[in-house]
Amino acid sequence: MSRQNRSGLSRALNIFGPFIGLVLVIALFALIPEVQGRFLRMANFKSVATQSVIVALGALGMTLIIVSGGIDLSAASNIALASVITAYAVNAGAAPAWALLFGVLTGGLVGLANGALVTRLRLVPFIVTMGMMGIARGAAKWIAGNQKIDAPMTWINELMAKSPRPSWLLMAPGIWIVILFAAAMAVLLKFTVFGRHIFAVGSNEATARLCGIRTDRVKVLVYAVSGLFCGLSGVMEFSRLTVGDPTVAVGLELDIIAAVVIGGGSLNGGEGSILGTMIGVLIMSFLRNGCTMMGWPNYIQEIIIGAIIIVAVAIDRLRHRKEC
């Protein structure tokens, strides 16, 4: 009986662990009198959510990759490349819808290349995507002529507006896009054959092969889908900056990976959830937001977030040891 209880508890911890972390972070700043008033305002929550959009989109794809046992270090470079392509297209007079599509597809192509290299050449994802990190960043700078690309304002720039144009939207369209895709990806992971296959490949690739799963195909698809999300994230980056900047989002891949890991994803594969990842994204955003309000310098934020990543993974480890 006690074993059953403990497993029930650990399952609860599995689902609610990151959530408790988020509540703690919000409670922490809500209790500090200096920032309480500003922090707890609806407008602040909206702005935190808007700031989370870019990392969140990248993290949706990254969750699929990490659950499948892979990693994508090229995510941030891919985002920068997609933002440059989008700006380039808008600047060249393309209709905004086309520009958006080009940006998203660019990301998808980079992801597809990652997946093809990982499966065809049997290279470790870490190495392939590290190489792609340089290639995509370099390509972005090349296309942009090593400077920012200015582009005329279009409706793309409203995707990240804090006060959306049709006011009944209440939040930036980008946030709604994230919510929509998060729901779709959660369903994909939990309730489709493809989702089960992703978990199987990440949990034990040999078993997956034994069960007739086309592991290579699963991996290529996962990287390609993740690339599409990076592309969309790049469009959002362009929307926010109103220019195409090839030097944007440097190091952001680590924030994206951290969000997945804080949310319960295991770098060994086979574990992770979209809900957890989204909570991981919010934990980091609220921390940044709160620290800024406190007037704490940047380096304090970096130290705190670094420590939280280690604590999150350590708790995860502890939980696993108990189960065995």
Partner: peptide, 11 residues
Amino acid sequence: DRQGEGLALNL
């Protein structure tokens, strides 16, 4: 190889 290949132990 039940543990290494046969089963995905954490599923």
